[in-house]
Design a protein around this nucleic acid. Structure first.
Lengths: 109, 109
DNA sequence: CTAATATATGAATAAATAATCATATGAAGA
DNA sequence: TCTTCATATGATTATTTATTCATATATTAG
């Protein structure tokens, strides 16, 4: 028996299921794009309509809408129509926490 | 003046610099791949050599080494040679925290 | 109803990326 | 030295993905 086999057994106790890993990495992937991250940060200060987000990020309406769809599909944001506008808002409390953790990490360097 | 312009000013207070956003999203992107996430989880239980990681993940040595390089380039893991083997270990305290936050989010569904 | 404004969305494209294959490097033992 | 085991790495390929463009849908004003 070799050293690494011992360690394999020790480590393997803690590995989450494939499906859970899939979900987690999908979540992180959402945060892994600068545009989506910026959107999430904007929305952490309050709800915004699409046009406002476009102006703040200086990005095309189409690009922003596509990313908002991604965020919505991943259940990180919700939206509500009000007249011609559609307002987006954060859905999950963890979003803010995850962002601050990442921010801390980045500060450290 | 329209509603969204008001909200723009409110929200824009909190937007981090482009460079910081870039860094943060790059960090999340690392977590956004199932293989890398698995590796990080394994290493959170202790240091492992490459071969052990390959066996635990049932993945080719090449694929694992490429991802380890990614993790090392992003300063999330360090490594140390010991004879023929190279042992990898987590570098950053935040890694564990970020993972548990993501795990919590996923549990909720 | 028509025009104007806000948003959504499908198709196309360019860029990023994860795995594989082949091969190189490095250490240890015969 | 020659071989073997462990790891690293460049090139290639298939897939994913972010943006753009064109267009569709929805709401309100006139």
């Amino acid at each position: 028996m070799h050293d690494h086999e011992v360690e394999v057994r020790i480590a393997s106790k803690e590995i989450p299921s494939d499906e859970r890993i899939e979900r987690m990495s999908r979540l992180y992937k959402v945060f892994g794009d600068p545009t989506r991250l910026r959107v999430l940060m904007l929305l952490s200060s309050g709800r915004l309509c699409v046009k406002a987000i476009c102006e703040l990020l200086e990005m095309s309406q189409s690009a922003v809408s596509h990313q908002l769809k991604n965020l919505k599909d991943n259940r990180l944001v919700g939206c509500e129509r009000s007249g011609k506008e559609v307002f987006y808002f954060l859905l999950d409390d963890h979003v803010g926490k995850i962002i601050s953790q990442g921010r801390e990490h980045v500060e450290e360097e």
